[in-house]
């Protein structure tokens, strides 16, 4: 891991929402750099602006003020097509509620982003099956989401997130809809992929199990970065918290 290789950098990011006549400051001047190959967790209570920041980092939303650079590209200056290209090729998304397309089989779900990226059917099938076996579902490629358990669905979603060799995988509360054991498995899988494929993982969470595997934890509160801690600084706490459910 090249220590100073920055994948995403947010500079003075503000985000305001209009709720009727009131202006809500979801983000209030966030500066953050995300390094290649790291496992970063965004922690914070609901309403802290964690998800909003997550969406900015993921090129899903634009800041009201400030800039987000992904691989050196300023998100504000990109066209819709370029943004779509970035989402397709540079980003992988994992969601709390899995968000698999129910009309498609596991394999078709995984290969959908490859269609957009322009891979041939043969390449897609090969890569799709390879990814499914990496996440431990090699024999289940023909199943539909409804025929899979929550943990298995999330594995398919992880395989889908890796479809086009993304630079960053963004995981939004990936364990929130899973039981503790399955959640732990998913976290371990993410960590494994982070190490073996050198993929940067950014995860918004309030699952304390995540702390265990994170290289850095960013605490967000009231739209600001409260503190950033490296893993060795938090290891001590984890022992006592690892058994907790939330």
């Amino acid at each position: 891991m090249a220590a100073n290789d920055i994948v995403v950098s947010a500079i003075g990011v503000h985000k305001e929402y209009r709720m009727g006549s009131e202006v809500v400051h979801a983000l209030d001047g966030i500066d953050i750099d995300i390094y290649r190959g790291e496992y970063l967790s965004l922690m914070g209570p609901s309403g802290s602006g964690k998800s909003t920041l997550f969406n900015m980092i993921g090129a899903l939303d634009q800041p009201t003020k400030g800039d987000v650079f992904i691989e050196g590209e300023n998100m504000a200056q990109l066209t819709m097509e370029q943004l779509a290209w970035i989402r397709c090729n540079r980003m992988g998304y994992i969601f709390q509620s899995f968000n698999l397309l129910i009309v498609m089989t596991a394999l078709e779900n995984v290969t959908l982003p490859m269609i957009f990226a322009g891979l041939s059917p043969k390449q897609r099938e090969e890569r799709g099956k390879e990814l499914l076996s990496i996440v431990g579902l090699g024999d289940r490629w023909s199943h539909r989401p409804t025929e899979l358990s929550g943990g298995q669905q999330q594995r398919v979603a992880i395989a889908r997130a890796l479809a086009n060799d993304p630079d960053i995988v963004l995981a939004d509360e990936p364990t929130a809809n899973l039981d503790t054991k399955t959640g732990r498995e998913i976290i371990n899988l993410l960590k494994e992929l982070n190490e073996s494929q050198n993929v940067t993982i950014v995860s918004a969470t309030h699952d304390l199990k995540m702390l265990d595997v994170s290289d850095r934890v960013v605490y967000i509160r009231d739209g600001k970065v409260e503190q950033i801690r490296a893993r060795d600084e938090i290891d001590i706490h984890v022992g006592s918290l690892a058994g907790e459910h939330e």
Partner: peptide, 26 residues
Amino acid sequence: SDSAIRSQIRLPFSEAVRISFQSLKI
């Protein structure tokens, strides 16, 4: 990543038909 962002995202017509057909079937 150093090269300029290529903005080609595709959805071949045959794939689109297949996906639509599946949606109808389900």
